[in-house]
Simulated scan of single mutants.
Amino acid sequence: MGPMLCLSNVALQVGERWIVQRCTLTVPAGLSLVLGGDGAGKTSLLRLLAGELSPDAGQLSLAGAAWGSAGWGQQVFWRDPRAPWPAALTPRAWTAALAGQQPRWREDEWRRHVDGFALAPHLDKDMHQLSTGSQRKVLLAAALASGAALTLIDEPVAALDRGAVRYLCAALQRLADASPWTERIVLVAHYDPLDDSLPWRHMLTLAG
């Protein structure tokens, strides 16, 4: 059956605003989408699932592991695309470290996505030298290659060129079509469904 993400009566408040209240749902393995406009709380919800924010109420589990446990953290891939990068860090060095942290890391998939996003000329540059779009491509390639049971991707097409957007949608479709797909949940947060052909198994809309 693959991993399942389960929320039971979960509430999350950020500042004076409730992102979710009494939210109960089960997200199955596959491709899922969190919809919402700017300020709706999509990033906050992903940060909750990544363990960076604590729920104000309720319980969460991922493939049987409770939220906040080591078993939860070991199954999640997340990096806030807006967070600053450490100095003197190259894509090659960052992903080499990731390969040791992510139990399901796929080096062959990383190389595939490096080619797909045309990242080869940038692998040994400092992340600070890269454009916002190239930084986003590095993050997306790593997320797709991570193999993590819960892979969290926030606003994936921000700063991407059209070719990169097409490649991303094709990569998501290929994941959805692959036989090992049941081993993973890929949760994308965006303001629209990206591509009408993508087989979203679950959609959650945040009203904002």
Rank of each mutant, 00 (worst) to 15 (best):
Q74Y: 05
A99G: 03
R112Y: 06
D80E: 04
L46V: 05
V27D: 02
N9K: 13
L98R: 11
G73W: 13
P28H: 00
R79A: 12
T90V: 03
T24Y: 13
T132Q: 15
S134A: 12
P91R: 11
T90A: 05
G73P: 14
V76Q: 12
G64E: 14
S131W: 07
W94A: 14
L139H: 01
D115G: 01
G133T: 05
Q74F: 03
Q101W: 07
A29D: 12
V76C: 08
V114D: 06
W94Q: 12
A65K: 09
S134E: 12
A143H: 08
V76N: 10
G116L: 03
A145S: 05
E16V: 03
C23N: 14
S44D: 04
R112K: 03
R104N: 15
L144F: 06
L119D: 07
L35G: 07
Q13T: 13
S32A: 06
T95G: 06
D38T: 01
R104A: 15
A97L: 12
T26P: 00
R17F: 00
V76P: 09
S69H: 12
A120P: 00
D80F: 07
Q59F: 03
S32N: 08
A142K: 03
P81H: 08
A83K: 07
Q135L: 13
P84N: 02
P81E: 05
V138F: 02
G51F: 01
L25S: 10
C23P: 06
S32T: 04
P91D: 04
L123S: 08
L53Y: 05
Q102K: 15
W78Y: 14
S8I: 04
L31V: 08
S69F: 13
L139V: 02
A120D: 06
L123I: 08
G58F: 04
P81A: 11
A88Y: 15
A118N: 02
A97V: 12
G116N: 03
R22Q: 06
Q59L: 06
Q13C: 11
G30P: 09
R106A: 10
M127T: 09
L49I: 02
A141M: 00
P91E: 04
L45Y: 06
T43F: 07
A141F: 02
S134M: 12
F117T: 01
Q135R: 15
H113P: 02
A83I: 10
L89A: 13
A50S: 01
R106G: 06
L25F: 05
A50Y: 00
G73R: 15
A50D: 01
D80C: 08
A93R: 14
P28A: 00
A40F: 10
K42P: 10
G58K: 08
A145R: 07
Q13P: 06
G116W: 05
T90C: 04
G71P: 15
G64T: 13
P121S: 10
D108H: 02
G68N: 15
A29G: 14
K137Y: 13
R111F: 02
W72P: 15
L62V: 06
L31T: 07
S8Y: 02
G36Q: 11
Q13I: 08
S8T: 08
G116Q: 05
N9L: 07
V10R: 12
G116A: 09
G68W: 14
P84R: 02
G36A: 05
P91N: 05
W78P: 12
P55R: 00
G73V: 09
L144N: 03
W67I: 11
A29C: 11
L89Y: 08
